[in-house]
Amino acid sequence: MTIENPSRDEIGEILRKKKTIAVVGLSDDPTRTSYMVSEAMQRSGYEIIPVNPKAEVILGMKAYNSLSEIDKHIDIVNVFRRSEFVYDITKEAIEIGADVLWTQLGVIDEKAFELAKEQGMIVIMDRCIKVEHALTK
């Protein structure tokens, strides 16, 4: 099976409409890619909700232990974890009713892709949300 992401135009439309992003694996270390990408998205007007059980506040926002603790609708679950964690994160994203599952560069799980698609989610894998945002402005 091959991962087939939405077209660049479709990704642009997603990023214009979906503004609440839960970032699973968002580090509180400003030198980490997850922090820099999320900070850039926050500066671009997106609401960033950190999911990191080892932190209390990241980018000025309360950090949550898991997606299920967040008490509002999540448009995009952006995953900054290794591929072996994606399937369980996908199950949690489905449980909370998130619209989009997005994994960062190098993060691919075909079973998670299929599961999310079967549940009606939009799935984008192996793409940097910050780069896609810049390309679709």
Rank of each mutant, 00 (worst) to 15 (best):
M1S: 06
N5A: 03
P6S: 03
I11L: 06
I11S: 11
E13W: 11
I14A: 00
R16N: 03
R16S: 08
K18L: 05
I21V: 07
I21Q: 02
V23M: 05
L26D: 01
S27M: 11
D28P: 12
D29S: 12
P30Q: 15
T31W: 00
T33Y: 12
Y35W: 15
V37A: 11
E39L: 09
E39K: 15
E39C: 10
E39Q: 10
R43K: 15
E47G: 06
I49R: 01
I49Y: 11
P50H: 12
P53W: 11
K54T: 15
A55V: 13
V57C: 03
I58G: 02
K62V: 10
K62P: 11
A63K: 08
A63Q: 07
Y64M: 07
S66D: 03
I70Y: 14
I70N: 00
H73A: 08
I74Y: 06
I74R: 11
I74H: 04
D75R: 00
I76D: 00
I76L: 13
V77G: 10
V79L: 01
F80Q: 07
R81I: 11
R82L: 05
E84Y: 15
F85I: 04
Y87C: 10
Y87W: 09
D88C: 10
D88I: 09
E92N: 09
E92K: 02
A93I: 06
E95S: 07
E95D: 13
I96G: 05
G97M: 11
V100M: 14
W102E: 06
Q104F: 07
I108T: 15
E110K: 14
A112R: 04
A116I: 02
K117D: 08
E118F: 01
Q119V: 07
Q119E: 15
G120V: 07
M121C: 02
V123L: 05
D126L: 00
I129P: 00
V131T: 15
V131P: 03
E132M: 08
L135W: 13
T136R: 03
